[in-house]
Amino acid sequence: MEFGSADLFRKAIRAHAVKHMRAVKFKKNDANRVMAVYEGKGCKWFVYASWLGDRKAFKIKSLVDEQICVMSFKNKFVNSKMINEKYVGQ
Rank of each mutant, 00 (worst) to 15 (best):
K59C: 13
Q67N: 13
W45N: 03
E39R: 12
K61H: 12
D54W: 08
R55K: 15
W51N: 02
I68H: 10
S72W: 01
Y38D: 04
M35K: 08
V64L: 13
R55T: 15
S50M: 11
V37A: 02
V70M: 07
G40M: 06
G42I: 05
W45K: 08
V64M: 11
D54E: 12
S50Q: 07
S62E: 14
L63D: 03
V37R: 08
G53K: 15
C43M: 04
G53Y: 07
M71A: 13
G53D: 09
E39Q: 11
I60M: 09
I68A: 13
A49M: 04
Y48T: 10
G40P: 00
K61V: 09
K44L: 15
S62D: 12
A49E: 02
K61T: 12
V70D: 10
C69E: 13
K41I: 09
V70F: 04
V64D: 10
V47P: 00
V70W: 02
D54N: 12
Q67E: 12
S72C: 15
S72H: 03
V37L: 09
E39N: 06
D65R: 09
E66T: 14
Y38H: 11
K61Y: 13
V47Y: 01
W45C: 07
A57R: 14
D54H: 13
S72L: 03
K59Y: 01
S50C: 15
Q67Y: 10
E39M: 11
S72I: 01
Y38W: 05
L63C: 10
Y38Q: 08
G53W: 07
M71C: 08
V34K: 01
V64I: 07
G42L: 05
D54I: 11
V34W: 03
C69W: 03
K41L: 07
W51P: 02
Q67C: 10
V64F: 07
K44A: 14
L52Y: 01
R55C: 06
W45L: 10
G40D: 13
S50E: 10
R55S: 15
Q67M: 14
V47W: 01
D54Q: 10
Y38S: 02
S72Q: 10
G40L: 03
V34D: 00
E39F: 01
W45Q: 03
A36P: 02
K41Q: 09
K44M: 12
C43F: 04
K44D: 11
M35G: 00
W51S: 03
C43D: 07
G40A: 15
F58P: 02
D54R: 12
V64E: 13
V64K: 15
K59P: 00
F46S: 05
A57P: 00
A49R: 01
C43S: 15
K59T: 08
W51Y: 08
I68K: 15
L52F: 05
D54T: 14
A57K: 14
L63I: 07
V64H: 12
D65S: 14
E66S: 13
M35C: 08
K41F: 05
